[in-house]
Amino acid sequence: MNRRRLIIPPVSLPVLLVMGVLFVIIFAFFSGVVMAAFEKLGIPPDVAYALFIFALVGSFLNIPIAEETSYEPVVRVREVRFFGIAYPVPFFDWEERRIIIAINVGGAIVPISVAVYEIFRMVYFSRWTLLSNTLLAVLIASFFSHAVARPVRGLGIAMPLFLPPLMAMFLGWLLGGSNPNAVAYISGTLGVLIGADLMNWNRIKNLGAPMVSIGGAGTFDGIFLAGIIAVLLV
């Protein structure tokens, strides 16, 4: 009798149904949260839903934008013969590593596009005071995100999830004037992008990962969530 081991054990129908229901509930809740944040920014509901779907699908797409090269010490072994006897001798050598830096469509391009759109709206309506306050908020949020971000070898840039949104929320209250939602979203989104990713660009090549994606966690990445959470808290 031929016995085969299943790598993945079979799942019963009730478990599949429960998992399906949980997925629908989580999807509906998360989409509602994102759409509520976009609507607070003045984005129409149909456009907000289209942005959410595009961000969700785009979470699986990474666009390479750069390639970095680093050299790391490695231990190698070579044979040394002495009177005809081979001896393994370890020695240190340098190995070249190439790291591809990419940008995630859903986790970075979509929220950045929304932030740039809000900035263009300020320019279009000649709201120069609000624009200058927004740029100041982005500067403060960037240095704050850089201070709390930590490069994690083999993974990428890690940071606490709720600290950047809280800072963006306070900046929205402090500098937002008549439109704190826009200031909170822009400073939260661009603050994480600039402070956590761009300001740590020189450290990315030393992370030891074959590819590092900006916004790589998609709709669950800090760039995407920072602005969303900040707007909901304002």
Rank of each mutant, 00 (worst) to 15 (best):
N2W: 04
L6R: 10
L13T: 15
P14T: 05
V18W: 03
M19V: 06
M19L: 14
L22C: 15
V24L: 15
I25K: 05
I25A: 14
I26Y: 12
S31V: 00
M35I: 15
A37E: 03
A37G: 12
I43Y: 08
V47G: 00
Y49T: 07
Y49G: 15
Y49P: 01
A50H: 10
L51P: 04
F52S: 09
L56E: 08
G58D: 14
N62T: 04
I63G: 04
T69Q: 11
S70C: 12
Y71D: 03
Y71E: 14
Y71H: 11
V74S: 10
V74R: 15
V75F: 06
V77H: 13
E79D: 09
F83G: 09
V89H: 10
V89W: 06
P90N: 10
F92I: 14
F92W: 02
W94A: 13
E95A: 15
E96D: 04
R97L: 06
A102Q: 14
I109Q: 00
I109T: 07
I109M: 15
S113V: 05
V116P: 04
E118Q: 11
S126T: 09
L130W: 01
N133I: 00
L139W: 03
I140F: 05
F143S: 02
F144V: 13
H146W: 12
H146A: 09
H146C: 00
V148L: 02
A149W: 01
P151I: 09
P151K: 05
R153H: 10
G156E: 12
I157M: 14
F162N: 04
M167D: 03
M169Q: 07
M169H: 09
G172D: 07
W173E: 06
W173K: 08
P180V: 08
A184N: 08
A184S: 15
L190S: 03
L190H: 00
G195S: 08
D197W: 10
L198N: 03
N202T: 15
L207V: 07
L207K: 12
S213I: 09
G215V: 13
G216K: 02
G216V: 02
G218Y: 06
G218C: 10
D221I: 06
L233D: 01
V234C: 08
